Each structure stands twice: as structure tokens, then as C-alpha cells.
Simulated scan of single mutants.
Amino acid sequence: MLFHVSIDADDPRHVAEVIAELWGGVALPFPPVIAGSWMAMAGDDRRTTVEVYPRGTELVEAEGDADAMGVIGGNGARSATHLAIATDKGVEEVLALAKREGWPVKYRKRGGVFGVLELWVEGSRMIEVLTPEMQAEYRAGLTVENWRGFLSAAGMAPAA
């Protein structure tokens, strides 16, 4: 199952607003990865979300104990596109799979709300893998109300 996906666009806000309209959801700013990003939230029980980054955004692996970040690049080997997917495997099984494939992987706690395993497919495309425990954190924490609270705490006026 899919929780969220990211894309890039020339007008991230407009694209997020149109997707949100199609879902009957909401569009809100999404600043954690790169400035100018927006997201469309379906408001469903899966917390389905499309993150929309500025055109040309590339996700890059951060060194050490830090989250991946977005930078504006030349649309080379990296991109803004990533997936957050569910697995019934445990953390150790996912780590073993990554080791077998020779792909970088590390545990990250997104915004102090939910954990993911950042799995870098072929060393260049990120998939956030959520174990059953991480899925429960995601579903409990990523709500429209919670995101609006985050934006308010960050001094950003959420969209109506």
C-alpha cells in the first residue's frame, strides 16, 4: 500500500490545490524538505498525501544523523520523487535486505512524529519503508489537524 508520493511542479501550490480538490481534501504548505513545497492531503484513513516540490528538486542523502533533504539541481541521477510504503517485515529484515542489495539505509524519525527506514534504491532513489509499528505512528500523527498545528507553531499561517 502507498502512503505518500512526491512530485515536482512549476507551481507546487496550484498543483497541490488541484489534487486536493479532486480528493475533497486540503492543500497545505510542506516546508520540511525544501522551501516552496506544498502537499495535498486526502484526509482519508490512510493519510494519503502527495508532496509537491518546486520543479528541479532533487532529494539527496544527508550525512550522519540527519534526514534527506531537497536541493534544486540539474535533474541528474536524483529527483524529488520518493515513496513511503508499508511492509509487514521488521526493521532487522529490512536492514538485511538493504545490506544484501548494497543499498544505503537508515532509521529516521520524521518530525518527531513517525519513524521510517530511508532505503536508497540503487543508491539514488529514496523509498521510506514503514514497519507495522511505524505505520501506526504515521496514521496517528499525520492528520490535517496535526499538520495545521505544526504550521502554526512554525509561524506559518495555514491555508483555510
Rank of each mutant, 00 (worst) to 15 (best):
residue 89 K to R: 13
residue 38 W to K: 03
residue 132 P to T: 11
residue 78 R to H: 11
residue 91 V to D: 06
residue 103 W to G: 05
residue 141 G to I: 09
residue 150 F to W: 04
residue 28 L to Y: 07
residue 109 K to S: 09
residue 150 F to G: 04
residue 27 A to D: 01
residue 84 A to R: 02
residue 63 E to T: 12
residue 57 T to K: 01
residue 135 Q to W: 00
residue 130 L to R: 06
residue 75 N to H: 13
residue 134 M to K: 00
residue 30 F to W: 09
residue 150 F to R: 13
residue 17 E to G: 02
residue 17 E to A: 08
residue 116 V to T: 11
residue 90 G to F: 07
residue 140 A to F: 14
residue 52 V to Q: 01
residue 135 Q to A: 06
residue 59 L to P: 00
residue 85 I to V: 13
residue 58 E to C: 03
residue 159 A to G: 05
residue 58 E to M: 04
residue 80 A to I: 08
residue 155 G to F: 03
residue 22 L to H: 13
residue 26 V to T: 05
residue 124 S to T: 15
residue 32 P to Q: 04
residue 144 V to P: 04
residue 10 D to S: 09
residue 22 L to S: 11
residue 105 V to R: 14
residue 48 T to E: 00
residue 126 M to K: 12
residue 3 F to R: 01
residue 55 R to Y: 07
residue 41 M to H: 05
residue 40 A to Y: 05
residue 110 R to E: 11
residue 121 V to C: 09
residue 17 E to L: 03
residue 21 E to H: 12
residue 108 R to A: 06
residue 53 Y to Q: 01
residue 16 A to H: 04
residue 60 V to W: 11
residue 36 G to A: 04
residue 37 S to W: 08
residue 94 V to D: 00
residue 32 P to L: 09
residue 98 A to Q: 10
residue 31 P to R: 00
residue 30 F to M: 10
residue 112 G to C: 06
residue 83 L to F: 13
residue 68 A to N: 03
residue 103 W to Q: 07
residue 96 A to P: 13
residue 98 A to C: 12
residue 144 V to E: 12
residue 42 A to E: 11
residue 150 F to I: 15
residue 13 R to F: 06
residue 110 R to Q: 14
residue 65 D to Q: 12
residue 81 T to H: 15
residue 61 E to D: 15
residue 39 M to L: 10
residue 83 L to G: 03
residue 116 V to P: 03
residue 91 V to W: 07
residue 9 A to K: 11
residue 53 Y to V: 01
residue 160 A to K: 15
residue 108 R to S: 08
residue 13 R to Q: 11
residue 159 A to Q: 10
residue 139 R to W: 07
residue 63 E to K: 14
residue 28 L to P: 01
residue 114 F to D: 02
residue 23 W to A: 10
residue 107 Y to V: 15
residue 98 A to M: 13
residue 20 A to E: 04
residue 42 A to C: 04
residue 66 A to T: 12
residue 79 S to W: 09
residue 60 V to Y: 06
residue 11 D to V: 15
residue 158 P to L: 08
residue 126 M to Y: 11
residue 106 K to R: 14
residue 109 K to R: 15
residue 48 T to M: 03
residue 67 D to E: 08
residue 157 A to H: 13
residue 63 E to W: 05
residue 33 V to F: 01
residue 50 V to P: 01
residue 19 I to M: 07
residue 87 T to R: 04
residue 52 V to F: 01
residue 122 E to S: 12
residue 153 A to N: 14
residue 39 M to K: 08
residue 137 E to R: 12
residue 131 T to C: 05
residue 94 V to P: 02
residue 126 M to H: 09
residue 55 R to E: 01
residue 47 R to F: 06
residue 70 G to C: 04
residue 141 G to Y: 06
residue 117 L to I: 15
residue 89 K to G: 01
residue 129 V to D: 00
residue 4 H to K: 05
residue 3 F to C: 06
residue 57 T to F: 05
residue 75 N to A: 12
residue 4 H to S: 03
residue 68 A to L: 04
residue 10 D to P: 02
residue 19 I to V: 13
residue 139 R to Y: 03
residue 47 R to G: 01
residue 83 L to M: 13
residue 100 R to H: 09
residue 71 V to I: 12
residue 61 E to K: 00
residue 62 A to M: 10
residue 96 A to H: 12
residue 127 I to C: 02
